[in-house]
């Protein structure tokens, strides 16, 4: 069995956070809590992505020192997942804020943050 490294641990925690977030999304009835769970879900997701991109004993993909300039690809961690996470975080922010705007608007309509109150459309 391979030795367990930091990336496996992070991966595992990432999944746990993701699942906790999912649990929150599915079980909370307060809309704010649901949105909050979404941020947790996103965070878990991001951890997973970064952990996947991480290769042991590599430094950050910032080409500042001279020794990194040669044979770059084998020394740094994969930069792509990190770039993805950056984008994902920004998008996550966008989504979260839009969700909150919705929450606010919903509250204005019915004075309630209880998700079961919003069943006007059904069947």
């Amino acid at each position: 069995m391979e030795k367990i490294g930091i990336e496996q641990i992070s991966l595992a925690f990432g999944f746990i956070i993701l699942m906790l977030g999912l649990w929150g999304i599915l079980s909370r009835k307060n809309i704010i809590k649901i949105v909050l769970s979404f941020t947790l879900f996103d965070t878990g997701l991001n951890i997973i992505i970064v952990a996947i991109g991480y290769l042991k004993n590599k430094t950050a993909p910032i080409l500042d020192s001279a020794e990194l300039q040669t044979d770059t690809a084998s020394k740094i961690v994969d930069p792509l997942p990190q770039a993805l996470v950056l984008t994902s975080i920004v998008i996550g922010l966008g989504v979260t804020s839009l969700l909150l705007v919705y929450a606010l608007k919903l509250y204005k309509e019915k004075k309630s943050l209880f998700i079961n109150d919003y069943k006007d459309l059904k069947w």
């Binding site: 930091i6 990336e7 992070s10 925690f13 941020t39 996103d42 965070t43 991001n46 951890i47 970064v50 952990a51 991109g53 991480y54 590599k58 430094t59 950050a60 993909p61 910032i62 961690v77 990190q82 996470v85 950056l86 975080i89 920004v90 996550g92 922010l93 979260t96």
Partner: peptide
Amino acid sequence: LYLLLAAPDVALTEASIGSGLT
């Protein structure tokens, strides 16, 4: 954790946007 995973820029972003702004 991102710092440990050699992703300082992600760490920075997460701290400011994910943690702060959100």
